[in-house]
Write a protein that binds this DNA or RNA. Structure first.
Length: 478
DNA sequence: TTTTGAGTTGTTCGA
DNA sequence: GTCGAACAACTCAAA
């Protein structure tokens, strides 16, 4: 019997065993599989994780390790520059191949190219696969062979293509005769040093199994009512799959086919099902734009926005970050974010519009805060969302679309339950005062136990005049 | 080739 | 209270 070779399977943003194209290809070589994870702190600068995402990663690696052990395998963890670590591991294990699934952050694309070139020149097989997107960004072009900059035609073009059917999990992984050394997960120091993660622990179960449960829950309880409830932060109206998607604990193809089969089962599911899948389309669009316009990581796509008169105001920024703006819906959102590492998408738009258009603080400041506090922080999606709100991105919101934080709250949190949950000091106020406590009569405030400036902040800005200023600022860059 | 209409997520104003 | 219009500029695709 001939001795088998070893092959490295390099886990990155694909922390799952099912529908993992690189893993499948590694298995098909018939060789022994050595699963590895490399924590490259300094190297992946644009994608280097924020605190909430690190917390998630710790849990996710723990879960992946357990899942691999069930297959008789392990996860080898190392820390350092990816190429150096790969070379070390190749030497230690005598492996002759490295397989991975592609990432699309510009700095990671560059790094991975260098790694591939280096390995090939040293006669190591290095192969990358698509397991994170429905469509590779370079394959979706308009009739002039250029990247789309408007969502609807982009998505229409996508829908004419076929989507690869997901692969099921392996039952067993061949192990090497000798395992290389591994760090322990705790050595990566991903968990916070001070104990601020209680809310995250309560809000989330992490890992591939949890992702599948979350999807099943969404298929049963969310997707059918998606069209109607997706904008309601007070209800269970969205799937909350974003962090699982970011870390690759579930793949978009798995979600795609799960929703499609629900539609086939029950045609009344169709309209909402397709509205839901369209959101996967937005994720694709974000990756597509980041690939074609990598400078948008920190620069506005619409160049005239480089001249926009952004304000620096540390106090206002801090009030926004801490959920102390005096606008209940904004504060509720920012506090939900801080407590759970997540915020409802409708509320993300409201708080982002408030930062960018009411406070005139740059979208990059908002983007950084979201990056650090979201468990689903994802470069492509975060940049698209903030540029869209600021009006400087592809297919952006029109400049005159300035969200009114009072009417948005009245419309999408009609009972005020979302506000009451996250801003409990207002819980005894009723409609309409809960949306605008500064207009409430003194006796109402008193009955509700609210003292503006003491129990709840006085609003830091007047929306009506802020709106006028924002329009003038936008006029100034025309 | 040129033209035309439509395009995730809104607000305000005046009839 | 409800309703329609106006609020740019530009990309894209179909006519």
């Amino acid at each position: 019997m001939s001795k088998k070779n070893n092959v490295l399977i390099w886990f990155r943003q694909d922390l799952r065993l099912s529908d993992n194209a690189a893993l499948k290809a590694a298995i098909e070589t018939g060789n022994n599989i050595i699963p590895i994870y490399i924590w490259s702190l300094d190297e992946e600068k644009e994608a280097s994780l924020g605190a909430a995402s690190r917390w998630w990663l710790h849990q996710s690696l723990t879960s992946l390790t357990q899942d691999l052990e069930q297959l008789g395998s392990r996860l080898i963890i190392r820390q350092g520059k990816a190429l150096s670590i790969l070379c070390e591991l190749l030497a230690e294990t005598q492996a002759n191949a490295v397989f991975w699934n592609r990432c699309y952050e510009p700095s990671i694309i560059e790094r991975d190219k260098e790694i591939k070139t280096y390995l090939h020149s040293n006669n190591i097989e290095a192969k990358s696969f698509n397991s994170q997107l429905l469509f590779e960004p370079w394959t979706v072009l308009n009739s002039s062979e250029k990247p789309f900059q408007v969502f609807t035609p982009f998505w229409k073009a996508c829908l004419t293509r076929s989507i690869t059917i997901p692969i099921s999990s392996p039952k067993h992984l061949e192990r090497p005769t000798k395992w290389p050394k591994s760090l322990e997960i705790k050595d990566l120091e991903l968990k916070p040093k001070i104990n601020w993660d209680e809310g995250l622990k309560k809000a989330w179960k992490v890992g591939e199994k949890a992702a599948a449960d979350q999807l099943n829950n969404a298929l049963t309880n969310v997707v059918a009512g998606y069209k109607e409830n997706r904008d309601r932060p007070d209800l269970e109206g969205v799937s909350k799959l974003s962090p699982y998607l970011h870390f690759g604990e579930i793949s978009p193809r798995q979600i795609w086919y799960a929703v499609k089969s629900k539609i086939v089962e029950n045609s009344s599911y169709q309209e909402s099902g397709e509205a839901y899948l369209r959101q996967l389309g937005w994720r694709e669009f974000a990756y597509h734009l980041l690939f074609w316009f990598p400078q948008t990581v920190n620069k506005p796509l619409k160049e005239k926005f480089a001249r926009f008169p952004w304000q620096t105001n540390k106090e206002s920024l801090k009030a926004w970050q801490q959920g102390k703006t005096g606008y209940p819906i904004v504060d509720a959102g920012m506090r939900e974010l801080w407590a759970t590492g997540w915020m409802h998408n409708r509320v993300r738009m409201i708080v982002a519009s408030f930062l960018v258009k009411d406070l005139l603080i740059s979208w990059q400041d908002g983007e950084r805060w979201f990056w650090d506090t979201l468990v689903d922080a994802d470069l492509a999606n975060n940049v698209l969302g903030w540029q869209w709100t600021a009006g400087c991105g592809a297919d952006a919101a029109p400049y005159f679309r300035i969200f009114n934080p009072v009417s948005q709250a009245e419309k999408f949190d009609p009972e005020g339950n979302y506000i009451k949950r996250w801003v409990p000091e207002l819980k005894n106020l009723s409609s309409p005062w809960i949306y605008k406590p500064w207009e409430a009569p003194a006796n109402i405030l008193e009955q509700a136990g609210v003292k503006l400036g003491q129990t709840y902040p006085i609003r830091i800005i007047d929306h009506q005049s802020a709106r006028v200023k924002a329009l003038a600022a936008l006029e100034s860059i025309k």
